[in-house]
Design a protein around this nucleic acid. Sequence first.
DNA 1: TTGAAAGCGCTACCAC
DNA 2: GTGGTAGCGCTTTCAA
Lengths: 360, 360
Amino acid sequence: MHERFAAKRPATVADVAAAANVSKAAAARALGGYGSVSSAVKLKVLEAARRLDYRPNELARTMATGRSGTIGVIIGDIENPFFGSAVRGLSDCAAQSGFDVILSNSDETIATERAAVAVLLAKRVDGLIVAPATMHDKAHLEDARAQGCPLVLLDREAPGLLVDVAIVNNQEAARDATQLLILADHRRIAYVTATAAADVSYESPEQIALATVRSRITGFLEASTLAGLPEPGRYIRLGANNTATAQAIIADLLSAPDRPTAIVASDSKIALEVFRAAKGLGLAIPRQLSLVAFDDADWTSVVSPAVTVVAQPSYQLGFEAARMLIERIGGTRTEPRRCILATTLIKRESTASPPMRGDF
Amino acid sequence: MHERFAAKRPATVADVAAAANVSKAAAARALGGYGSVSSAVKLKVLEAARRLDYRPNELARTMATGRSGTIGVIIGDIENPFFGSAVRGLSDCAAQSGFDVILSNSDETIATERAAVAVLLAKRVDGLIVAPATMHDKAHLEDARAQGCPLVLLDREAPGLLVDVAIVNNQEAARDATQLLILADHRRIAYVTATAAADVSYESPEQIALATVRSRITGFLEASTLAGLPEPGRYIRLGANNTATAQAIIADLLSAPDRPTAIVASDSKIALEVFRAAKGLGLAIPRQLSLVAFDDADWTSVVSPAVTVVAQPSYQLGFEAARMLIERIGGTRTEPRRCILATTLIKRESTASPPMRGDF
DNA sequence: TTGAAAGCGCTACCAC
DNA sequence: GTGGTAGCGCTTTCAA
């Protein structure tokens, strides 16, 4: 351990050039693999580089070229399996094209999201993938574009923002899921979702700032209305953002006298709490309570009964978002595209007809 | 939409200086908040900056100062909930100190890991957090340090690498879990783990390149040997890296005539497959098969029976790793530290005594 | 307090 | 094919 000054100054192009007895420009060309160099020079330079353990400084390269080889990603929460998988997808796609990913959590908070955009822009990422926390506040996204930074929206649209998006058809997915329940004769169907909301009860679409949530509720209401269900919005519950509030909301819902006979859970975490609550209250699924959940979380196919789910192609969503972004970075200036991936309604064992027919 | 050239060149310090009628140096000082500037100048500069929508270029700043405000993170797979949570923890900690996180997946592959280190070093990250894919190949980690880049190991040690680590005591955790089973009179206990291996059967510790896996197997064997179990290694199965192989391994294990009466699953994904297999084979848990799993995945407490688990503090692991790293970046040159966090054995319903006593 | 100028490490342009 | 040189946008001496 006598190497107290282990951290010696890394070798630069200039060092290599000197060691190889060529000009800086020649060395740079040999090292960077551009322009033209005689093979003799190239050999000398590469040899010197190896000897000096030369590593290019990406930063300097970025400053000179304007390209960083990095894409910035802003999502709500990496702990959410949906985003975990989406990030994996976009990382894989980015890696294939030689891009790195710099990741930020917005905590579904607009202030944090705004700050993250600023930082990533300052770091001169080549492009941005964002799952916006709200569809309203989009000035920061607009000026990313204004600064010439390509942008792709992931999972969530922001109406009026003319950029590429990778999404699913949430309205249709929610409608189909609800219809499955309606076809089984359910007439009291609840919809439980996480989303920032002043109150847990539902008033109107304007109340909802998250594009996905709004679309799903629209789909849910569409199916309900079509089937002539009375007051279709009365069983919609917002704000199930964490375990505790989700539990409270579900308990409240299930202990009411005219409790719903079926629940649509807007994500797997909520579904888990429905499962737990049903167990606790002694309600048998699906005999006394039907359940359909968004996201095909790994556990849903293993529990008894296995949960009927709306599977979302989260990995592909991320992958496609990255693909579109990288294409943009490549320079193609075309119309904004909407990549809409299909969801799959996987029928399993958690849905059946309600216990008492002719209830009304 | 007449702004076809929306992407106009962003304002620089020079632009601001010109607009404010001061020198570049003065503007830079006002903007960067260092050195000394008269409040008159400061005001003019800040006003001009606002008018021109000036945003500092972090890259240029990094080139000049040598600090990037970014830490690089290399993990096996962000889709793994354990890492998802760890990344969340380290992101949160990093954000608190104003650092950004640039994330790479190694796919548990040494070549990819090596490449990732090179890239992150080239991007001049201020420090590195790595969950090394193997304890053997550590040259790339060593020369990160040699280049003066602080390094912290996450979840997995690499013997001989004298750097900070944030880990749990896997050996102890596995020993305790195994002993729980032994105390319940199990004598045929299997250990199923994911890890790169030529063969699924276990020969010796040297075969295992992943620090965590090796420690856990050591703990498992320790408890087994202590209890005088015959051939304690015979039910160890390696290579359960994905759903398909995990299923095959478990099916093989459970359909043998002298099948184990208990299984220790090395992660929640494997536990899920054990659950699935037991269901498929008609084996009742815990009556006919006991199960203990590493990682307190959300579903483990909801299924019937609820799964006994070794809970790992994954979020904290990430958080502490980042904390130590940032301290290092701060400059404190001290001895390498080992941050060892406690696991918790959570007893639930998936463990009981084996069906037939006096079996041997 | 202020301004001029020298880098940071690389690319890219332009003569030779 | 090769070498000089002017930037990229910022920080940081150093004199004034």
